[in-house]
Nucleic acid binder design. Structure first.
Length: 315
DNA sequence: CCCCAGGCAGCGC
DNA sequence: GCGCTGCATGGG
C-alpha cells in the first residue's frame, strides 16, 4: 500500500506526550491504537472518508500518512489540520472570570488542553451519536464497529484484520432489518431511527452539507436535526460540535450534568433533564465558561471529570 | 436484583 | 406548554 506522507508541527499545550497522543481520541469512536515500537511516539490509525489515515505523534511533530494524497479532494495536510482541529483558535477557552472563580477546576481542565475537537464526517458523527443513548462508551464503539463491518466498504485487510469504511447513507437506509438491529446493540427502536435518518439523508430530505455550510447557524442546524426520532438536544449538540464545528454547542450528558452540579452548583430544577432545563443549563454554563469556545471547554472538563474525579479509563 | 451508561418520546396535568 | 415516567439493552 503506497502512502503519501506529510509532517506538521502541533502547537500542543505542555503535557506528557503519551497523554497528548491519547487525547487525540477525543470523541472519536473509531480510532485504533497501534502498538508503539518507539517509546517516544504514539501511533494511531483512523478511518476517515473511506481512507485509512495513519498518524504518529513524535515530540512536537505530527506525522500523517494516507493511501491517497488527498481526501475529499483536499490536500492531505489541509484535511488533517481540519480533521484534528489543529488550525482552530484555542485562545481564552475559559474566560478570566472563570479562572478566578474556579482555579482548581481550571487547573484540572487545563491538563487536558492538548485535546482538540475532531471535525468528523457529518453522517458518521450523526449515526455514531444516535448509538450513544443510554449506553457506555465501550458499547458505542462496538456498535459503530459493527455497523462498519456489516454495511461498510472493505478498505484493506492489512494490520491483521479487515478495515471497513463507515457505511454510506444508502447502505444503512437499505440495510437488512435484523442485521441492523444486532448492530444497534439489539435495540429495535434505535435501528428503526437510524434507518429512517439514513433514508432521509439518502433521499436528500436531510441535507447534511447544507447544515455544514458556514451560512447555516448553530441553532438552525440543531433545529433541523431534532425533528427526527432518536435525535434530541444532546445528540444534536454533539453533531453540531463534532460534525459541524459549532463552538457554541455545549452537549450535556450524564457526566456533564454531574460536574455542572458538583463543581459549579448548576443543577436542574426538575428531576429529569427536561428540554427547557437542558437549554437553561447550557446558557448558564456558557455564561460561566465564556463564549470563546464552550464546546472545547466542555470536552476538557468532561475528560477531567471522568478520568481524574471518577477514575474511569475508557477512551 | 441492583445501578449505571456521552437520552428520548409519550402521556397526563 | 411543561414535567414525570417509562423505555430499552448490556455490563458491572
Amino acid at each position: 500500500m503506497q502512502h503519501h506522507a506529510y509532517t506538521a508541527s502541533i502547537p500542543l499545550h505542555a503535557a506528557p506526550l503519551n497523554l497528548r497522543a491519547t487525547l487525540f481520541c477525543g470523541q472519536a469512536f473509531r480510532w485504533i491504537e497501534l502498538p508503539a515500537s518507539d517509546p517516544n511516539a504514539a501511533y494511531f490509525q483512523a478511518v476517515v472518508s473511506g481512507e485509512v489515515l495513519q498518524l504518529s505523534v513524535h515530540h512536537e511533530v505530527l506525522y500523517a500518512a494516507c493511501t491517497s494524497s488527498s481526501i475529499e479532494g483536499e490536500p492531505l495536510a489541509d484535511f488533517v489540520n481540519k480533521y484534528l482541529g489543529l488550525s482552530r483558535a484555542m485562545d481564552n477557552v475559559f474566560q478570566p472570570s472563570f479562572q478566578k472563580k474556579f482555579p482548581e477546576v481550571y487547573r484540572g481542565a487545563m491538563r487536558y488542553a492538548g485535546l482538540r475537537l475532531l471535525q468528523q464526517a457529518p453522517f458518521e458523527t450523526l449515526i455514531s451519536f444516535m448509538c450513544a443513548q443510554g449506553v457506555g462508551i465501550a458499547l458505542i464503539r462496538r456498535q459503530v464497529a459493527e455497523l462498519a463491518t456489516h454495511f461498510g466498504k472493505l478498505l484493506h485487510t492489512e494490520l491483521g484484520e479487515p478495515t471497513y469504511a463507515f457505511p454510506t447513507p444508502d447502505a444503512l437506509a437499505s440495510a437488512n432489518r435484523n442485521t441492523l438491529i444486532r448492530c444497534a446493540n439489539n435495540n429495535g427502536i434505535r435501528a428503526k431511527n437510524i434507518r429512517a435518518v439514513s433514508k432521509a439523508v439518502a433521499l436528500g430530505e436531510l441535507n447534511l452539507n447544507n447544515l455544514l455550510s458556514p451560512t447555516c447557524s448553530y441553532l438552525d442546524a440543531r433545529n433541523a436535526l431534532v425533528t427526527y426520532n432518536g435525535i434530541g438536544q444532546k445528540i444534536a449538540d454533539c453533531v453540531c460540535a463534532f460534525g459541524f464545528g459549532h463552538r457554541e454547542a455545549f452537549p450535556i450528558d450524564t457526566h456533564v450534568r454531574q460536574y455542572l452540579q458538583q463543581w459549579f452548583r448548576l443543577r436542574s430544577r426538575t428531576v429529569s433533564l427536561t428540554p427547557k432545563e437542558y437549554d437553561r443549563l447550557c446558557d448558564r454554563a456558557r455564561h460561566l465558561i465564556g463564549d470563546a469556545n464552550p464546546a472545547l471547554a466542555g470536552q476538557w472538563l468532561f475528560h477531567y471529570w471522568r478520568k481524574d474525579v471518577k477514575g474511569m479509563t475508557a477512551f
